[in-house]
Design a protein around this nucleic acid. Structure first.
Lengths: 251, 251
DNA sequence: GCATGTATTTGATCTAGGTCAAGGATTTCG
DNA sequence: CGAAATCCTTGACCTAGATCAAATACATGC
């Protein structure tokens, strides 16, 4: 499943970490000329943990890429039930060319730095620079795959499987950013609060907490502090996640 | 939310129904020259209701667009739990340029006719014809939005809301194909079996059946035969679906 | 150090929806 | 027409996870 698409956005991010503009996966294939054009229309915005970047329905006249920190996309029912529908880690892209209002609430989960491009100017660049559009298509298709894996999780997995899946996803993405292969023991910080996890998984935060405790009791994970976990045996975790062999590129 | 992207794939389908090749939303903006190139690499495939088009992981060396009938994309856990992750109605697109194996099981729910394009040839056309890629990006972004609305449904809606949502979605898509606005009374055939609905909604077919009965008892829908329903008051249905005002372009 | 506030864990209970099982209703095919 | 196969409905019961409530950890500012 993953073999064919050569590079994931995260990976590109790491690859080019010495050059600020190349942090933007979307322009990974740009030459210096093109980067200059992008440079001209870019600006940075930063947010504190907990701040809202935009509300669903608000005008959003830029597209952006996460430089550091974590943001979430979520949807809400009028009575307040909330479902996360996107998790943005460094190098992930937000915003939709061709649409001028945000479709989801975008929230900074940690302190967040985003590199933004004015939308209309970005659209112009897309017209003259086909590979930016092509790259965006690849990224969107990856996101669609992730969303569909996520749908399987939401619709059919048990609470325990959901938690195991999420921990595996976070471990993998963390490892990807660090360029460490997830072999054997893996140790990392959970970037999400219990509440955020519950929004991600479509369950309550109490159930999240209980299942984490259960996985700890059963030796699937070790919990050093509330936020720091170690996975003694990654394969065991994957098994608990109920995933198909190859398992997720869930964003 | 919907205002900005000008034309949905379904709409294009209807608009161009006199020209077979234009059934393919992806080439809606092609000129005659370009259509000719597409014509050269296209072929048709048909399937009977219940047949599998491809299994997840199988080689798939074409991309395709549904001409008539209905297909589903679904994912399965090893123990057989199944989640539908895509519903393909006429004019919808399947397949991913740049990937050579199917990521999901594709199944014909009804008799199905697909218009296929050899993948490598299609990719070549994409390189020389930017607007095909652009159109594909638009369509993919629409699908991603649909997937995310679907995630909200799977993660947070009650059984009753799920059924109401699904009926609303099917009614809307049916209406879109017929170019009839869903005002007042709407009457149509459910294109899915109870089991397929349960795969869509992440619940059991018994619960699907019970909730349909409940909505009938409460006068939200009228059920003429197992498969034919009438919606006396569309707004009432939307309210039952728990949706935000604007409500779904759920595929 | 102490008060205040927020995040997390854990317990006790309840319920929506799953599971198991039995009947109807429709279609298909002889 | 009747047998067989599907598909759908309904009932009785049970469990995973929600809900309500309390206790515990961990910060932060004073």
């Amino acid at each position: 499943m993953q073999k064919t698409h050569t590079a994931s956005p995260r990976f590109l991010h790491v690859q080019c970490s010495d050059c600020p503009i190349r942090h933007q996966a979307v322009c990974a294939r740009c030459d210096d000329d093109e980067l200059e054009k992008l440079e001209a229309i870019k600006f940075y915005r930063s947010f504190e943990a907990g701040q809202t970047v935009v509300w669903s329905g608000d005008r959003m006249d830029y597209v952006a890429s996460v430089v550091s920190g974590i943001a979430t996309l979520s949807q809400t029912l009028e009575d307040g039930r909330r479902q996360m529908v996107g998790l943005l880690l460094p190098s992930d892209f937000v915003g939709r060319p061709g649409r001028d209002t945000a479709a989801y609430d975008v929230t900074a989960t940690t302190d967040l730095l985003m590199c933004c491009f004015r939308k209309t100017a970005f659209e112009d660049i897309m017209l003259t620079t086909p590979h930016v559009g092509q790259r965006l298509l690849e990224m969107t298709l990856d996101e669609l795959d992730a969303a569909r894996e996520w749908m399987l999780l939401l619709g059919r997995k048990t609470a325990r499987e959901k938690i195991a899946s999420l921990i595996a996803i976070m471990a993998r993405r963390d490892a990807a950013l660090k360029l460490i292969e997830p072999e054997g023991r893996v140790s990392f910080d959970l970037p999400l609060s219990r509440e955020a996890m519950s929004d991600y998984l479509g369950m309550t935060l109490e159930t999240v907490s209980r299942q984490i405790s259960a996985l700890r009791r059963d030796g699937v994970i070790e919990v050093e502090s509330k936020r720091h976990v170690t996975i003694p045996d990654f394969d065991r975790l994957i098994e608990e996640a109920g995933d198909d062999a190859d398992g997720g590129f869930l964003t």
